[in-house]
C-alpha cells in the first residue's frame, strides 16, 4: 500500500514539469533546493537542538563553490562541495562545542558575518556585492538551467535528502540527536558522546546545505551575497519551526512557505511585506504551535480519530469492560 502510494506520488512529481509552464517548474525546483537545506538545518537544530544561524552560509559556500569550479566535471564538483561542507561544518562546530543557547547562536551568526565579509572583500574571486553569473551545467544534451532538466536534477537530490533524513529517524544516531537536544544528562547517562554527536550533526547539516547551494547556483545561474546572509539563515529557521522540528515533511512544508509566499507577495507587488509576515509567523508558530504545522496536523488527526472511535463505541453495543 505504502509502496504503491509512493510510486504514484513519484510518478506525479516526475511528470509535473511536463504539465506546468517553465516559471512554475523553476519555482518548484527552488522549493526542493530550499527543502534540502531546511532538512539539513532540521538535523542540527530541529533534532539536535543546536541553534545555528549559519545555515545560509553553508548554502552559500556550496553555491560559490559551484560558481568557481564550473570547469570541473559535475561529479568532481559534487564531491568537492561535500568535502568542503563537511570541513566547514566541523570548523563551526568545534569551537562552539562548549556553548549553547545564545552563545552558540551568536558565534554561528559571527561565522555567517565573516562569510559575507569574505564574499564582499574577495571581489576579484567572488564578484563582491555584484555577485557572479554561473554558466549552466551540461547534462546530456541539455543543461541545468533548462527548467525541466534542472527540475529532474534537483528532484534526484531532494529525494535522496528526504530518504536520508527518514533513515536517520530509524537509527541510534537519530536517537542520539534527540537525546542531546532534550536532556544532555540523560544522553551522558546512556553513554552517548555529546561532542561526537554535535560535530556529526553540524557536518551533516552543512553537507545538506552545501549540496543545496551547489544545486541553487547551477539552476538559478546567479549568486550574490544577500542570498546567503543573516536573514536567509533566519528564514531557514522559520522553515524548520513552521513545519515542525524533527519532521521531514515539516521541512518540505517550511521550504514551500519560504519560497512560495515571497513569490506570492511579489506577484501582488508587495514583496517588502514578506519579512513582516515572516516575523509574525515565526512568533505565532513558536508561541502557539511549538511542534509546528505537522505536529498540529498529527494532533488534529489523532483527535478526530479519537472522536470517531468514541462515536463508534457509543453507537455499537456496549460490552462490559
Amino acid at each position: 500500500m505504502r509502496i504503491a502510494a509512493s510510486i504514484v506520488v513519484m510518478a506525479f512529481v516526475g511528470l509535473l514539469p511536463f504539465a506546468l509552464d517553465s516559471y512554475w517548474v523553476f519555482t518548484l525546483s527552488e522549493v526542493m533546493i530550499y527543502a534540502i537545506a531546511t532538512i539539513g538545518l532540521d538535523i542540527v537544530f530541529g533534532r539536535a537542538g543546536q541553534l545555528s544561524l549559519a545555515q545560509a552560509s553553508f548554502f552559500g559556500l556550496g553555491a560559490y563553490l559551484a560558481a568557481l569550479t564550473t570547469t570541473l566535471p559535475a561529479g568532481l564538483q559534487f564531491l568537492l562541495v561535500v568535502a568542503t561542507a563537511m570541513i566547514a561544518g566541523a570548523v563551526v562546530a568545534i569551537p562552539t562545542l562548549r556553548l549553547s543557547g545564545l552563545r552558540l547562536a551568536l558565534v554561528t551568526l559571527l561565522f555567517g558575518e565573516l562569510f559575507i565579509w569574505a564574499l564582499d572583500h574577495l571581489g576579484s574571486l567572488t564578484g563582491g556585492t555584484q555577485g557572479l553569473v554561473v554558466p549552466a551545467l551540461a547534462i546530456g544534451d541539455s543543461n541545468s538551467q533548462d527548467p525541466t532538466y534542472g527540475y529532474m536534477l534537483v528532484l534526484f537530490f531532494a529525494v535522496a535528502a528526504t530518504l536520508t533524513a527518514v533513515q536517520i529517524s530509524r537509527t541510534q544516531f537519530g536517537r542520539r540527536l534527540l537525546a542531546v537536544r532534550d536532556s544532555e544528562v540523560a544522553a551522558r547517562s546512556v553513554g552517548i558522546g555529546l561532542v561526537r554527536t554535535k560535530v556529526a550533526a553540524f557536518m551533516l547539516s552543512a553537507i545538506f546545505a552545501g549540496v543545496a547551494g551547489w544545486l541553487y547556483a547551477h539552476v538559478v545561474g546567479f549568486v550574490a551575497p544577500p542570498t546567503f546572509d543573516l536573514f536567509p539563515s533566519v528564514y531557514f529557521l522559520i522553515a524548520v519551526i513552521l513545519g515542525g522540528a524533527g519532521r521531514v515533511a515539516g521541512s518540505w512544508l517550511g521550504a514551500a512557505y519560504i519560497v512560495l509566499i515571497p513569490q506570492a507577495f511579489s506577484i501582488i507587488g508587495q514583496s517588502n511585506l514578506f519579512p513582516i509576515l515572516g516575523g509574525g509567523v515565526l512568533i505565532l508558530v513558536a508561541l502557539l504551535l511549538p511542534g509546528g504545522l505537522m505536529d498540529g496536523a498529527t494532533r488534529t488527526a489523532g483527535w478526530i480519530r479519537a472522536r470517531y472511535a468514541a462515536m463508534r463505541q457509543m453507537s455499537s453495543n456496549r460490552r462490559p469492560a
Binding site: 533566519v234 522559520i238 519551526i241 513582516i276 516575523g279 513558536a286 508561541l287
Partner: peptide
C-alpha cells in the same frame, strides 16, 4: 526564536 521573529517583524 521568538525574539528573532520580533527582530524580523
Amino acid at each position: 526564536v521568538v525574539t528573532l521573529g520580533a527582530l524580523l517583524l
